[in-house]
Write a protein that binds this DNA or RNA. Structure first.
Lengths: 219, 219
DNA sequence: AATAAAAACGAATCTGAATTCAGATTCTTT
DNA sequence: AAAGAATCTGAATTCAGATTCGTTTTTATT
């Protein structure tokens, strides 16, 4: 029976199955090192030899786990999106939403995405965007997750915006989601902006703008 | 006297001065080919040999004009930002704004940036963002231009938003600007979004959201 | 504890695109 | 129209990393 990793699910293209625990540790070490390094450098700037050094492994052992550098990125992404998904499921629940006003619910969406984009996975996310159009549709789990979040939000709030029909509300919430991810992805790459995630100003701005867009009366 | 190019200003780091017209044509050919190619590929994917072939030049002649591939990108960027700047100066004027309501003025800002992000320079812009933090501060002309646009807007509209003080109006217009560029830059990289620049839906959404954010009454 | 399968190791090899360079050609100047 | 400067050319070179591979070490099985 194959040893099971506590970190990574099986069956990623180009990621070899680990039969011994030491290779699981090896693999997980590379993944941890990569996720961290991507918060400082671009993927192109990562050298296999540096990753090996950082995780106490050898270059050769990298290639016993990953077919090539691309397969390695796939592993980083699967792990990260998976962890993000778990955090969302835990934090963004129908139950929590029920106790909120429509404005607070919108705010909590902003905060949720803000937390994700400033998490330790931000580097992986940043590098994932330019690969969205790859043939294996790597962003599919993100889209699915976004749909779930929107459904959660919408199910709790379909009648909460009196200015708009149920259908219009759905469309508008989808636009809100896109505005938030647009602003945050932008902030990930840039650094000069007046409003930024670093000091929370971008989240404050988004909250106000989205409340206004959804016709939520001022408190 | 040095031959003067009709396309590129002088004095870019690593771009050699052209003394004969054939080298100006050569250089401009490379620049045109690059701007076009970047609407299809990433800068890393551009091969000097392909650029040479596309512009009817040789690999060697590339290096008689540009110190290296980076200097070439700088040239692409200077040329593009310059052309964008000229278009903005021509289209986004105080005079034009005077004939508009505050809502229409906001709309015209969205349209202006939408036009830029879907112009033939979109590839250069896409590649410029990840280089914003370079030591030579390549984005400086863009920031200057943004300030000018905001000043033009603000000067024409400082009393147009009764909900907000003059200072608050300024801050808010700056946030509007950032929302627009965020959404559009995002659209440049991604492709799966519901709202996109391709069909104008993203511009419509932005217009509505920003009007609401600025407290412009519905028409 | 012997054997075989996995895995680790890192120096050597490979790769492919950027860059160079030694003529060959075209301008510019006198 | 000759001389010298500028430019062009593309095959050869360089180079930074990714990838491989022959050995050695560790683990699992008997």
């Amino acid at each position: 029976m194959a040893a099971t990793g506590y970190i990574l699910k099986d069956g990623i293209l180009g990621v070899f199955e680990a039969r011994q625990n030491r290779s699981v540790k090896n693999r997980d070490g590379f993944i941890r090192a990569g996720i961290e390094a991507l918060n400082t450098k671009s993927f192109d700037e990562l050298k296999i030899s540096d990753l090996a050094a950082a995780s106490g492994n050898s270059v050769g052992s990298f290639y016993t786990r990953f077919q090539d550098k691309d397969a390695y990125f796939r592993a980083l992404r699967v792990y990260s999106l998976d962890a993000i998904e778990r955090e969302i499921e835990a934090d963004f629940t129908q139950i929590a939403l029920r106790s909120m006003s429509s404005g607070e619910a919108l705010d909590s969406l902003v905060d949720l995405l803000g937390a994700i984009f400033s998490s330790r996975f931000r580097g992986v996310l940043r590098e994932s965007y330019p690969r969205i159009l790859d043939a294996d549709d790597p962003w599919a789990p993100m889209r699915t997750q976004a749909q779930k979040v929107l459904k959660t939000l919408h199910d709790g709030l379909e009648d909460a915006f009196p200015d708009y029909s149920v259908a219009e509300t759905k469309t508008r919430l989808s636009f809100c989601f896109q505005m938030i991810t647009g602003a945050l992805q932008n902030d990930l790459v840039n650094n000069y902006h007046v409003f930024t995630l670093k000091d929370g100003t971008i989240l404050e701005g988004l909250k106000e703008a989205l409340r206004a867009y959804m016709g939520v009366p001022r408190s």
